[in-house]
Design a protein around this nucleic acid. Sequence first.
DNA 1: ATCGTTTTGTACTGGCCGGTTAATTTGAGC
DNA 2: GCTCAAATTAACCGGCCAGTACAAAACGAT
Lengths: 225, 225
Amino acid sequence: MPVRTEIQEGDRRSGWKQDPEAVRQDILAAAIAEFAANGLSGARVDDIAAKTRTSKRMIYYYFGDKQRLYEHALEDAYAQVRSGEEELELDHLPPEEALACLVGFTFDHHRSHPDFIRMVMIENVHHAQTLEKSDMIRDLNVAAIDRLAEICARGEAAGVFRPGINPTRLHWQISALSFFNVSNRPTFSALFGNELFTEQGQEALRAEAVRIVLAGVMADGEGQR
Amino acid sequence: MPVRTEIQEGDRRSGWKQDPEAVRQDILAAAIAEFAANGLSGARVDDIAAKTRTSKRMIYYYFGDKQRLYEHALEDAYAQVRSGEEELELDHLPPEEALACLVGFTFDHHRSHPDFIRMVMIENVHHAQTLEKSDMIRDLNVAAIDRLAEICARGEAAGVFRPGINPTRLHWQISALSFFNVSNRPTFSALFGNELFTEQGQEALRAEAVRIVLAGVMADGEGQR
DNA sequence: ATCGTTTTGTACTGGCCGGTTAATTTGAGC
DNA sequence: GCTCAAATTAACCGGCCAGTACAAAACGAT
């Protein structure tokens, strides 16, 4: 049962081609879900196939083996998520507001992409050995730091940020607070209850994350709200 | 080749018993290493056995199956690490110093127990389904929050902390900054280089972690250092 | 020495699962 | 309509690995 997209958009040259591209995407989506749910060695190729509109054989046809499927799934997950981030426009805001906005956005964005977070967790369990090979992913992330560095530069120039801020460290802090919130939710709520993961709890965590990150960059004279 | 401890300490009643307790500990240590390195489904019982002074048969004899071995390994990892934390004595310090000290200590402590961090990561990948069943681990962690709550109470009473601090949220922040530093090191350094993980980089991160956590709890009037 | 219980070693198995074989369908170009 | 290559299917294989069968030590007690 070949997959046909009703509207042909990205197809090469002529009319048709029972749409291998859609099959690939279908497989990748299933793979991301399965890998995110069960990890690399925990994922079952048969289960991925079951979630697909095609068969196991097709996975091997398009991706070769499990490892390479995982590589593509990881790249796809990163691409999806980072492309969402690029839409954020901060240039017109004054630096503190831009940073506050970025922190809040990152917090929310991580929260709404748990599968992506889980892929990164899994990748960390495996010492990032797959990530290391992907130039594409590296480029995406370096761009994120550049945007942050730009905000820092404006803030320093305006005298509202203290001088000598390291954008990579700042990114680390923002990521830590946003990532941990999703990655460690299971153990944290098993140990301490659900309080922090209700809507109000999350709002409070979000607000405090913004607050403390800002506090970290503000020049000494400037009070934090 | 039975394992004998030279000095008999915890042995029940009479003379001896080729020391099953030492065998258990030997197995658990190997299991923690293997699970931390390869995850739950990635770990191989044969490999654990190879790291042991005994055989695979003994693992099944003492622990029944892989899942129960994992449960005991997780509990053991938590117990080891939390027992190290209890030694920290903060009661005699003024509240801000106590908190600063606790944050710094937590940062260092996580850093020096990467296997424990990895066990928790893995547990999160599995939705904490094993952790949930362990009352022992829950008790250990609730105690950690109590210590923190005590510091908060002192700080509020002295007027140096703002009122209404939530100790669980505070613990979440401290954990986030300390945990992420270890858990996401592989991907982070694959993407952004090693800069943050040199000795100087880590010191800067540590100092900033202390700084921003303190900034989060300080009363408005009090400047941060 | 002999018995019963605990502890250990060896060798094996059964099923799960990543990967494949080989044959069929599909559409494009002629 | 025929041919060729791309796409797809169903059935299968073989190695890995969690878990076991069986029996033999090792030990305490008598």
